[in-house]
Design a protein around this nucleic acid. Structure first.
Length: 270
DNA sequence: AGGGGAACCCGTACGC
DNA sequence: TGCGTACGGGTTCCCC
């Protein structure tokens, strides 16, 4: 479930730890996590290359090499680990660094992916994604325009990576509760003022979660195997049937909206 | 075009 | 207790 705050946590740690590191040896243990490259091509490109930076885009960690990019999308159980995992059976990729450290891509359920991009492919991938919510270049007017053409539910739109990058189920639920907006409202029904409030709420919850190194609901761990601290701060996600922190009404929960867990307060979300 | 649904994967939860 | 099955979850791909 790593969304924006969780992948941001991983990327910041890895950037500090890996900038300038050289990858000496590559072992592909579970080749089915690879995308856009065969195991042989992956080894050929990655072996001997230097890591120039590590960043985040949407819910992916982007490891920049000299000429290529590794785009790691952990999905539910994927992790980029600098420490020895508790169970090495789930190591999919093993990168030995010249300084003696090891970077592993570890994934129990293997729905996560590691793609290899050259510069042109990476630019195309990047341009297909929507704006970053924490980028101040995205203003409420632009966001309002992006939403007002759609009949889809606002919660579905928040999670549409072409419209906005990095927001998944947890933070979509949380931002809508904070903004007092019902998840099922059609995008085009939102007024300009409501969209401004929603963007403010979204930025606040993402920023607070990053400060606590993300939400570990079940599986998320950072590069050192440590859990995030934001789960205790969640107002609605995973709290169906419990009381709303604002008005004490029992929170409603459904899976009907795009098949995902949606939790909201029918009293204070309109 | 835009939206809906299946596939991907396997640990966990649950039923018998 | 032990086995079998349903489920979840984001993205991609396919189809209507």
């Amino acid at each position: 479930m790593p969304e924006l705050p969780e992948t941001e946590t991983i990327a910041r740690d890895l950037d500090a730890a890996l900038r300038g590191a050289v990858i000496d040896a590559v072992t592909v243990v579970r080749g089915d996590v690879l995308r856009e490259a065969t195991a042989a091509a992956f080894v050929r490109v990655v072996r001997g290359s230097r890591i120039t930076s590590v960043n985040r885009r949407a819910k992916s960690i982007v490891v920049a090499l000299q000429s290529h990019f590794l785009v790691v999308t952990p999905r539910f159980t994927g992790a980029l680990l600098l420490t020895e995992p508790a169970d090495d059976r789930y190591t999919c990729l093993h990168l030995a660094l010249a300084d003696g450290r090891t970077l592993r891509y570890h994934d129990i359920r293997r729905l996560g992916t590691v793609a290899l991009h050259d510069a042109a492919r990476h630019a195309a991938w990047d341009s297909a994604l929507g704006p970053e919510p924490l980028d101040l270049a995205l203003d409420a007017d632009a966001f309002w325009h992006a939403l007002r053409s759609s009949r889809q539910a606002i919660k579905t739109l928040l999670m549409d990576q072409r419209k906005l990058a990095g927001v998944g189920n947890i933070y979509a639920n949380e931002a809508l509760w904070r903004a007092g907006i019902r998840p099922t409202r059609a995008g085009k029904s939102l007024r300009r003022l409501e969209v401004g409030g929603l963007l403010d709420a979204l930025r606040a919850v993402l920023t607070e979660s990053i400060a606590l190194r993300g939400t570990t609901f079940r599986d998320f761990q950072d590069a050192y195997g440590v859990r995030g601290g934001f789960a205790a701060k969640l107002a609605v996600y995973g709290r169906g049937g419990q009381h709303c922190h604002r008005c004490c009404t029992p929170l409603r929960a459904t899976h009907r909206l795009a098949g995902r867990q949606t939790v909201w307060c029918a009293t204070c979300q309109r």
